[in-house]
């Protein structure tokens, strides 16, 4: 009883804090995009610039409410947002919510694949490096991870593209949805084919951080008094890792993995750009370059919710797994 009440209070506080943060993000982002010298009307008109006269421009501005004072514009936008309307994209001329939900389905497949792959491989590499601290294996893993941490994601994407598409010819070079084909008509296997290279790129780059953190955590655990005592009782190698190491790094590793949603999203933006993968990241870049204000605002908010969801899941798992939080003190 007591426990579930504590958890409920904890969740409530978290959500309240998130609400204040989201409200602030809405307001600040709105001011920021309104401050931009990039003309939103131009973004709406796009290539038809030449055919649009000044009167028409004014009409368009009026239609979008761009001639009103900023605070009024904000209250319109925020009011609509609260009723669930994120507005209409100026470039795609579709509701922002629809675009985000379609794009998210593409991106989540990519991010999930990379998240799981880099999580498992990184954890394994970090654990091996820590257990073999100071050996050649440890030094190689560390060198590799530090180098990966310094590698630009998009450059890694270009390398992967060069090797697998240009040299080996395993994948087509233009990896996006082929022109003229509706998103719904793409088969599952085609989807997987489009997913592999960006997922590989994100995993390769993501492994570095996971491994370095796991290594450091496990080294701390291995230096603890309880591991010293376990060694005094004759435990060593894999048994020691299994009984005490894994148990004690599992929770921080999971927390870290869920806290990495922010970097994952950033990585996806770059990987999607390199592989022209039609996900959220590509939409963000497009919205930024073309000045699609409603879409850009929607994506900023969505990315914040995404990051928050990751942190929240991590916190809840922590409370469920760690006996020091799960069980009562006697």
């Amino acid at each position: 009883m007591e426990k579930s009440r504590k958890l409920a209070i904890f969740l409530l506080l978290k959500v309240l804090r998130m609400a204040t943060l989201l409200a602030a993000i809405c307001f600040i982002s709105f001011l920021l995009v309104k401050n931009s010298p990039i003309d939103p009307v131009q973004a709406y008109i796009g290539a038809d610039m030449v055919n649009v006269g000044p009167e028409q421009r004014e009409q368009i501005a009026e239609y979008w409410g761009l001639d009103e004072p900023i605070m009024l514009q904000f209250s319109h936008w925020a009011g609509a947002l609260l009723s669930g309307d994120m507005g209409t994209s100026m470039v795609y001329r579709e509701p922002v919510a629809d675009i985000i939900s379609v794009r998210f389905r593409h991106s989540i497949a990519l991010m999930l694949a990379a998240w799981i792959l880099s999580g498992i491989i990184g954890f394994a590499l970090g654990a091996v490096a820590a257990m073999k601290k100071g050996t050649l294996a440890d030094r190689i893993i560390q060198w590799y991870c530090y180098t990966l941490a310094s590698t630009p994601t998009f450059w890694m994407g270009l390398l992967v593209l060069m090797v697998f598409s240009v040299w080996l010819g395993w994948f087509p070079i233009g990896l996006g949805v082929p022109a003229g084909v509706l998103t719904e008509d793409i088969t599952f296997s085609e989807r997987i084919q489009h997913l592999i290279l960006p997922a590989v790129t994100l995993s390769i780059v993501g492994v570095g951080n996971v491994a370095l953190h796991t290594r450091q955590k496990l080294i701390d655990v291995l230096g603890s008094e309880y591991v010293l005592f376990a060694r005094a009782r004759g435990e060593q190698g894999f048994v020691l890792f299994w009984r005490h190491g894994l148990r004690n790094i599992m929770v921080p590793a999971l927390m870290l993995q869920f806290a990495s949603f922010s970097e994952l999203f950033g990585g996806a933006v770059l990987a999607e750009q390199v592989f022209s993968y039609p996900g959220l990241g590509q939409a963000t870049v497009e919205a930024g370059i073309k000045g699609d204000v409603p879409l850009l605002l929607g994506l900023v908010l969505f990315s914040a919710v995404f990051v928050f969801a990751g942190n929240l899941i991590g916190d809840i798992l922590h409370r469920l797994i760690d006996p020091r939080l799960r069980e009562e003190r006697l």
Partner: peptide
């Protein structure tokens, strides 16, 4: 390595010598 924990046992100084999660 073969004998400690079997022939020679330690009673450690610190109560932190117990694994906190076991």
């Amino acid at each position: 390595r073969a004998l400690c924990g079997r022939e020679i046992a330690l009673v450690p100084q610190s109560v932190n010598s117990l694994d906190p999660l076991m």
